[in-house]
Nucleic acid binder design. Structure first.
Length: 451
RNA sequence: UCCUCUGUAGCUCAGUGGUAGAGUAGGUGGCUGUUAACCACUUGGUCGUAGGUUCGAAUCCUACCGGAGGAGCCA
């Protein structure tokens, strides 16, 4: 048994720290500290976690002068060796190499060295940037968050629904859409087709039959927005629940965010520690506090009240009926409460047709969840169920009723109270990691003018 | 789309009218249970592009291109 080399990875090796075992490990060199006289220290990373394993390469190895001495950051190697307790201070375990095989060297123009590279520069090489600590950590976190979302809904008996990516309906006229056609411009679908901006309307149909559903998929907006919080292609999570009212909806959103964040704190400790140290100091503490405190619930009317009574000078004027701007949301969330805030009961005039009209005739049961540093992370509502009212509101919004007969059918046949929300997945990854630019939390960012 | 900032070595940056610099990465040599290793030497740049002002422009002016931040819009 001792002669056989066991395959393993860096994460497992560091966790179990087995001593005097022959192991085989493959990965990419992060750094090398070497000498011609003695031996070299190689730090190896294989992506299984953020930490490296230290390899000791003695000069007696056959290929020491020819190959090992020339290793640099980025080279891919396979190591067979003995795991031993480390004499050094920064690690418990290390590997004394019996054999090091070079799987892939790097050319002179390899751009990633062990020195600092800005995130901005890394964006110019999306295929190589996952080899850095930061992007690697972000992508592992992103993967975990994705699993956590599915687990959350699965545990609550939600049905995972795949809504179409190619659609015929322009949901709520929310933003510009990308057209879909063939290269020769034939009207392939015999009618105009677009990439989806939301799966909400389709999800409503399935909520009113399966009860609890959620979508989690790509979403497209052709808005020409150039900010650190917008992408042309992003991923959205959209639960939709029959018999839920606006209060249930708020509770679901709060439970959801807390559950996902807790999961990340529990299962992504190494990466979270990295974010806390290098990306946003104190983020772990901030997230823990959010999990423990209640989200503030505030009506639009009360929000306007707080804002007008504050002595803060805002660029945009405030009066009941106007939409809240970023500066207002930021003040409420980051200064006044310094906690997540759920805003509700907005004026009907500034919200889409599908939100339930309150008895006052002026406000609708919409909600926005605001978090410090990001702003709006969730938007949702209790849906309008009364066919006469929703028809009127669609007409007022200039929506072609013809194309939405199926949607009105949902109100004509077996209608029920229901509610849901949408969460921008990349904004969640941003919030949990502390990364300031949304382009750095998706593998291949798509933004205006840039693929 | 609007406003502001920015573009100098592979990377991170300094250099406000007078011969293009540092650190780091890469190379060579040395040394060491090292860990942001260390010591010495060294390769490397049409200063985003195109015009203009000037005896002389990385530096001043104009236009264009790229990047970032903010706003609007949203998730």
């Amino acid at each position: 048994m001792q002669n056989k080399y066991q395959n393993t990875n860096v994460k497992e090796l560091l966790q179990k720290a087995p001593i005097d075992i022959n192991i085989n490990i493959k990965g990419w060199v992060r750094t090398k500290r070497s000498s011609k006289g003695g031996f070299s220290f190689i730090e190896l990373n294989d992506g299984s976690n953020i930490n490296n394993i230290q390899i000791i390469a003695d000069k007696k190895l056959d290929n020491y002068q020819d190959e090992i001495e020339h290793l640099r950051a980025g080279c891919c190697i396979s190591v067979q060796g003995l795991s031993v307790k480390s004499q050094g201070k920064n690690q418990n375990i290390e590997i004394h190499a019996h054999k090091i095989q070079i799987l892939g060297t790097v050319q002179d123009d390899y751009p990633i060295s062990k020195g600092r590279i800005s995130l901005e520069t890394l964006r110019t090489m999306p295929h190589l940037r996952p080899r850095t600590n930061t992007i690697g950590a972000v992508m592992r976190l992103r993967s975990h968050l994705s699993h956590a979302i599915h687990n959350f809904f699965n545990q609550r008996d939600f049905c995972y629904l795949n809504t179409p990516i190619i659609t015929a309906s322009d949901c709520e006229g929310a933003g510009e859409m990308f057209g879909v056609t063939t290269n020769d411009k034939n009207d392939f679908f015999k009618q105009p087709a677009q990439l989806t901006v939301s799966g909400q309307l389709e999800a409503e149909a399935f909520a009113l039959s399966l009860g609890k559903v959620y979508t989690f998929g790509p979403t497209f907006r052709a808005e020409n927005s150039h900010t650190s919080r917008h992408l042309s292609e992003f991923w959205m999570v959209e639960p939709e629940v029959a018999f839920n009212n606006i209060d249930d909806n708020m509770q679901l959103a709060e439970d959801f965010l807390k559950s996902i964040i807790k999961s990340a704190l529990t299962h992504c400790q190494d990466d979270m520690n990295f974010f806390d140290m290098r990306i946003e100091k104190g983020i772990i503490n901030k997230l823990e506090n959010i999990c423990q405190s209640d989200f503030i619930r505030l009506s639009y009317t009360d929000a306007i009240d707080i804002l007008t009574k504050s002595n803060k000078k805002f660029e945009y004027p405030l009066n009941w009926g106007c939409d809240l701007k970023s500066e207002h949301e930021r003040y409420l969330c980051e200064e006044y409460f310094n906690a997540p805030v759920i805003l509700t009961n907005y004026p009907a005039t500034i919200k889409p047709f599908y939100m339930y009209c309150n008895d006052d005739g002026k406000t609708v049961r919409g909600m926005d969840v605001l978090v410090p540093g990001i702003g709006e992370i969730i938007g949702g509502s209790e849906r309008e169920t009364r066919v006469d009212i929703i028809t009127k509101r669609m007409e007022q919004s200039g929506i072609d009723l013809h194309a939405y007969q199926w949607y009105l059918d949902l109100r004509r046949h077996g209608s029920a109270t229901h509610a849901g929300f949408g969460l921008g997945f990349e904004r969640l990854v941003q919030f949990v990691s502390g990364m300031s630019n949304i382009r750095d939390v998706i593998p291949y960012p798509r933004t205006p003018g840039h693929l």
